[in-house]
């Protein structure tokens, strides 16, 4: 029993990271219809920025967390203004290729700045454990789950209760109509990118104590992408559910199924789901009107 709880908690923690990265994908997609393949690499940059603030500048963990969020938000805002804004109106495919290119550049830049060796920093949660149902659970896992919950609550409040949030919803439903109603669509899009960048930074810093930081952790974005698609691209609850589902599936199949299957379990499940429900679990089936 205690083993099951342990597996469940580590799956949940891993899943929350996927969920956060997937959330970044979905936020951008819902608002701008752009598919950001570089979201995982933004998370990677966020983790490195956190490392720089904590180890390089000796900042307190919490200050570094806020600092990394702000830096990544500003960076993503600038990314939209200088790069992504130019491809508005081009096919989705072009944006996918553009962000794949951005991912290459981010990885290259990170390895030039911070080197290719894995790095780590100490957090208040490192090495601590808390007992749940008789099973010792690492504090790191708990911090990830709690951090995800808090972040989701904040985002929900933002979209539901603030004028900017409502404007974002409007822009995501009909760009042109929102523009005609006087909503500064361009700035709203840039803000969405900023939020995604901030979420990525949180994901990166929460993830850091779980693994070492190196340039390849961005590839985790592929699984997060699978999570977003599993949930139904464009659905925020779907992204969260998809992320957690994939985290759990991975951990359990790693323990109970054959060797190496852990790495592809997420993809097998994704394929099976897509063949039954082509629009994902929570996605709405839409077709063009003629």
């Amino acid at each position: 029993m205690s083993q099951v709880i342990q597996i469940f908690m580590s799956g949940l923690a891993e899943g929350c990271i996927y969920a956060l990265v997937a959330l970044g994908f979905v936020l951008i997609y819902k608002a701008t219809e752009m598919v950001n393949f570089a979201q995982g690499d933004l998370m990677m940059l966020g983790a490195f920025v956190g490392y720089f603030l904590i180890v390089g500048l000796g900042a307190n963990y919490w200050i570094a967390l806020v600092g990394a969020v702000v830096i990544m938000a500003v960076f993503s805002y600038a990314l939209d203004v200088f790069v992504l804004r130019r491809v508005i109106g081009q096919p989705q495919f072009a944006v996918v290729m553009l962000t794949i290119g951005l991912g290459f550049v981010f990885r290259a830049a990170a390895s030039m700045i911070w080197g290719a060796n894995p790095l780590a920093f100490v957090t208040p949660f490192t090495d601590g454990t808390t007992s749940i149902g008789g099973a010792p659970i690492p504090d790191v896992s708990l911090s990830i789950v709690a951090g995800t919950a808090v972040l989701c609550g904040l985002l929900f409040a933002l979209f539901q209760y603030t004028p900017v949030g409502v404007a974002m919803q409007a822009a995501s439903q009909n760009q042109l109509a929102a523009y005609y109603m006087g909503i500064p669509v361009k700035r709203i899009f840039a803000l969405i990118w900023a939020i995604s960048g901030g979420v990525a930074a949180v994901a990166g810093i929460l993830l850091a104590p779980l693994t070492l930081i190196d340039t390849s952790i961005g590839f985790l974005g592929l699984k997060a992408f699978a999570a977003a698609v599993l949930g139904g691209f464009g659905s925020i609850p779907g992204a969260l559910a998809g992320g957690i589902a994939i985290g759990l599936i991975e951990q359990f199949s790693g323990v109970y199924l054959m060797d190496g299957f852990k790495d592809i379990a997420a993809y097998v499940v994704l394929l099976l789901v897509l063949f039954v429900r082509p629009q994902g679990l929570f996605g709405a089936a839409a077709r063009k009107r003629v």
Binding site: R86, G101, L102, F104, R107, A108, S111, M112, A116
Partner: peptide, 22 residues
């Protein structure tokens, strides 16, 4: 000597194409 040189250039060229010569 940078190991990231090749993929980095690769990415930059791809970005350049999408932006300037779709």
């Amino acid at each position: 000597r940078q190991p990231g040189l090749e993929p980095g250039l690769f990415g930059l060229i791809l970005i350049g194409f999408i932006l300037f010569e779709p």
